[in-house]
Structures are given as structure tokens and as C-alpha cells.
């Protein structure tokens, strides 16, 4: 490919994004504004994540893209082939082989290791947005550490549903300072955010914000003393691989109420099946 610069973006743009990333890493959880570029895809398809990936990719990297945990959905396939064409980097679906993983709405089940970078696509970076619509005011609240309002949302959840019903984009506090939106990952994944060996970068293209968690950062999910945070998942084993510790998608399989639960992380599920684990919908001996 000679028509494009390496990884599509020009070098000056990548420098600008890298500066924002470094600032984000220096102030974990702080939303750094950056001059988001037009990308050859619509907003909402991961323009922020793609720009961050483009800025961190090197020719030696192995790239993996997941969308809701899956390697084979439209979004994941198109972004993977985008970088295959424009950067010529090796791609993989294996979590452990990848050096850069771009993700939408999930953290892989397999623990990440040092040297890996996890890039999140973020639709709305501001955790206080739906409580306080004024950006000028939310910035002030961040700078003055006025986070009482975040608990009002959780309070409303409990008073209305009897428990904290927020199940994704669950707000976290980073290193005892900034309250951060972890992007719409299920709250099942929240405990993995903290103390992770890999670098975590968050890119919001439309909102023009980048934020980051350096390795081994302390991340605490907000809660009440008498209603502690709970990482929840569907109470079933995976129908394909029988895993009981992974986050599950509920799949409707007929119009008579039939359903099955499958790992949302396809790589994790396939690796388990290859190792001989079979779930009850897969004729396996792990059948419940």
C-alpha cells in the first residue's frame, strides 16, 4: 500500500493523538481533549478507538478487534481489515497473541499481560452527562471533585428497583480521584479494569476525548456501604463450551421461547471447545 501513510493517519495527527494519550496516562481517568479527525467510517462505529489504535500501532504489532466480545461481527471485521490494508500489520483473533486489541463493549475473558494495549471505543466519555447536561459544569465538578451527583443516580436505581440496576457503563473512581465512564462494558467486566497488566486507552471520536488507565491502576466501582457493587452475569453455563466464569450472551433460537447462553468472548469459547470442553447445547459431557 503506497496510497496511505502507515495506519491511515498522517504523522502529525498521530503525534497529536500520542500527546493526548501520554497526558491521559499521566492523569489516570482525566478526559483529555484532542482534535478528532474525520475517519472513513461513521461516528458511532469506533472512530475514537480507530484513531487511538492508529496512533499506537507499529509495523511489528499484532492486531485484534472485538465487538461485544466477538471477532467475527461486522464492526470487528471491517476495522481489522482496515488496518490490514492501511498498516499491513499482522492480525489475529487470539487474545494472548495480540499486542494491540481494539474493543467495543467488552474486556477479553483471558487476563491480559504486560506489553499489551487495550483500546476502547467510547460513545460518551462523560459519566455525569445524563445528570448534568452542561459541559462547563461537569468539567468544574471534575476539577473540584464534586461527585455527589454520581451517587444520586445509584440512589435512584435502588429506590426504584431495590438494587443498583445500572448494568453497563458502570461508573468507577480511578486512583481515588477522577470518576470515569468505563465505556459501555458490562459491569461484570468492571473488576478487570483495576490492577490490569495491560495499558488501557479510551477514545471517543465524536466527543473528541481520550482518557487512559496505566497498568496496575487502582479502579473502584462506586457503590453504597449497604448496597455494595456486584459484578453480575446470566446465571447459566455457556451452551457451547460449558464455561461458568465468562460473560454470556442470550441468544433466541426459535419462536417458541427457546434460548441458549453463549460466551460473548468468541476467542475464549473457541479455545475452550478446542481443548475439549463442550456445553449442553453442543452435545458435550459438561451438560448440566
Amino acid at each position: 500500500m503506497t496510497e496511505y501513510n502507515f495506519a491511515y493517519l498522517d504523522e502529525q495527527t498521530k503525534r497529536m493523538i500520542r500527546r493526548a494519550i501520554l497526558k491521559g496516562l499521566a492523569i489516570p481517568g482525566y478526559q483529555v481533549p484532542f482534535a478528532s479527525r474525520e475517519m472513513p467510517m461513521p461516528y458511532g462505529w469506533g472512530t475514537g478507538g480507530v484513531q487511538v489504535s492508529a496512533a499506537v500501532l507499529t509495523p511489528e504489532d499484532t492486531f485484534k478487534v472485538i465487538d461485544q466480545g466477538a471477532d467475527d461481527t461486522t464492526n470487528a471485521v471491517s476495522i481489522r481489515s482496515f488496518f490490514q490494508r492501511t498498516a499491513g500489520v499482522a492480525t489475529t483473533t487470539s487474545t494472548s497473541d495480540a499486542t494491540v486489541i481494539q474493543t467495543r463493549h467488552r474486556i477479553p475473558e483471558e487476563p491480559l499481560h504486560e506489553g499489551q494495549i487495550l483500546v476502547y471505543q467510547v460513545p460518551i466519555p462523560e459519566p455525569l452527562r445524563f445528570l448534568e447536561p452542561r459541559e462547563s459544569e461537569t468539567r468544574k465538578m471534575h476539577s473540584l471533585e464534586e461527585y455527589g451527583l454520581m451517587h444520586v443516580k445509584l440512589y435512584e436505581d435502588i429506590s426504584r428497583h431495590g438494587h443498583i440496576a445500572t448494568s453497563y457503563a458502570y461508573p468507577v473512581k480511578v486512583e481515588g480521584r477522577y470518576v470515569m465512564d468505563p465505556s459501555p462494558i458490562p459491569k461484570f467486566d468492571n473488576p478487570k479494569l483495576g490492577d490490569m497488566a495491560a495499558i488501557q486507552l479510551f477514545g471517543a471520536g465524536r466527543e473528541q476525548r481520550i482518557y487512559a488507565l496505566p497498568p496496575y491502576t487502582k479502579v473502584v466501582s462506586l457503590d453504597f456501604e449497604d448496597h455494595p457493587f456486584e459484578a453480575s452475569k446470566a446465571d447459566h453455563p455457556c451452551g457451547m463450551c460449558g464455561a461458568t466464569d465468562s460473560y454470556l450472551d442470550e441468544v433466541i433460537i426459535d419462536d417458541a421461547g427457546g434460548r441458549m447462553f453463549v460466551c460473548s468472548d468468541t476467542d475464549y469459547c473457541e479455545a475452550r471447545q478446542a481443548a475439549g470442553h463442550m456445553g449442553k447445547d453442543n452435545g458435550g459431557k459438561d451438560a448440566a
Binding site: 455527589g148 451517587h151 440512589y155 449497604d226 448496597h227
Partner: peptide, 17 residues
């Protein structure tokens, strides 16, 4: 009750009950 509780939460109250 959320309206009344907001000021309490703003000064650090963290016990729902």
C-alpha cells in the same frame, strides 16, 4: 428523596439506608 439526599451524598454520605 433523591433530591433531598443529593446534598447528603455531596458531603460524603455513602449509606443508602
Amino acid at each position: 428523596s433523591g433530591n433531598v439526599g443529593e446534598r447528603l451524598m455531596a458531603v460524603g454520605e455513602r449509606h443508602y439506608g
